[in-house]
């Protein structure tokens, strides 16, 4: 299980992502500068971490999505390799066209930073083997632009094909209308058609240690590690 975390100017959670990957896989993750044109040989999963790449200039994730390393990430995804984008990483994935839709300013115009329940909407993917269908997990959210939007046809396709990965909910698993950012259908994360690319606004990488708030995020990384072992 070989993982790489991409570092853009303005990324700030790359070490958290690398730490979560190491906790789950037992192997150090390689941190790769955005100016590289290739991924390390044998990379199984690429993580695009949270942060404010390029200061969120133009649109969140827009400039990072056009950086040299993204061509290598695109080729990796097209080969069926795993790609996980968290927060700013999700914004980069929609800007690069690797995932459908767009992420707009939170509908209430405020940065939201808090713990948040999510419902696992689809299990059995490389990212969710270690979760149960409909399981409610608690992780952190910290973003100003997480309002997921897609045109009606795209939204119908995502829902119809079961490509919604996580939805925002309350502790009992009830979907919250628009919360915490106004996302359509309370969507917190989406998959690509082949389920090998996942983008999500919440931060599972920050919930892997009981010392800092809980371990509900660890399942995502152990799922990734387990899948790579099985492959």
């Amino acid at each position: 299980m070989k993982s790489a975390v991409i570092l853009f100017p303005g990324s700030n959670r790359e070490r958290d992502a690398a730490r979560a990957l190491k906790a789950a896989t037992g192997r150090e993750s390689e941190i790769i500068w955005h100016g590289e044109t290739a991924l390390p040989d044998g990379t199984d999963i690429v993580v695009l971490p949270g942060g404010f790449s390029y200061g969120d200039y133009l649109r969140c994730g827009a400039i990072a999505a056009r950086s040299p390393v993204m061509e290598a990430v695109r080729a990796h995804a097209n080969r069926g390799g795993l790609v996980l984008g968290i927060c700013n990483g999700f914004q980069i994935l929609v800007e690069s066209g690797l995932l459908p839709g767009a992420l707009l300013r939170n509908s209430h115009l405020k940065f939201v930073c808090r713990m948040q329940h999510l419902k696992v909407e689809r299990v059995g993917t490389p990212f969710t083997r270690d979760y149960r269908q409909g399981q409610v997990v608690e992780v952190a959210v910290a973003h100003g632009d997480g309002n997921y939007l897609a045109d009606p046809e795209t939204l119908a396709r995502i829902e119809g094909e079961g490509l919604v990965a996580f939805r925002y909910c309350d502790a009992s698993g009830n979907h919250l209308e628009g919360s915490p950012n106004g996302s359509m259908n309370a969507i917190a994360g989406v998959y690509s058609e082949k389920l090998n690319v996942l983008g999500m606004m919440p931060h599972p990488e920050n919930l892997i240690d009981p010392l800092v708030g809980g371990t509900d995020g660890l399942g995502l990384f152990t799922s990734i590690a387990g899948g790579a072992r099985a492959a």
């Binding site: 133009l58 649109r59 827009a62 400039i63 929609v94 800007e95 839709g101 767009a102 707009l104 897609a150």
Partner: peptide, 9 residues
């Protein structure tokens, strides 16, 4: 098309 606008939105 490539950068200045996100034609999704």
């Amino acid at each position: 098309e490539k950068l200045l606008a996100n034609t999704v939105i």
